[in-house]
Design a protein around this nucleic acid. Sequence first.
DNA 1: GCCAACGTTGGC
DNA 2: GCCAACGTTGGC
Length: 143
Amino acid sequence: MTAYWLAKSEPETWSWDDHAKKGVEPWTGVRNHQAANNMKAMKKGDRAFFYHSNASSAHGGRAIVGIVEVTKTYYPDPTDKTGRFGAVDFRAVRALKSPVALTTIKSEPRLAHLALVRQSRLSVMPIDEKSWALICKLGGVAP
DNA sequence: GCCAACGTTGGC
DNA sequence: GCCAACGTTGGC
């Protein structure tokens, strides 16, 4: 059973283009237990949306821009000196044909329940299958 | 640049 | 163990 997720990154720090160029890259720097617990629950082959947070219009604004796949499950984050938090590895799968903006998600009643809308500070969150399919459709790609 | 939400820290 | 102060995230 594949599960679905959403992970945020500030494009000024790490953008979708950076990830697509790199291929596989560790997802480090999460310092929130709720987000870390979500990463802990990820299995190999799970999919996640790559979301640009805090993005200026130069980067296309706040939007879901791509899809990644879990290639390595939760392990201690080498960038965390306290040893409390972990990381996973993501492989870039594909870019959305058209990015799905936060404003679009907020204006879609079927997506109003997403943590992306309700809990703006959470950086890694689960996405239910129906929402995954709908966002893929809005983004112009197959689920 | 501002500020709401919310997590963390430290005094008691 | 409570809670005020403070720091950070991220939308606007």
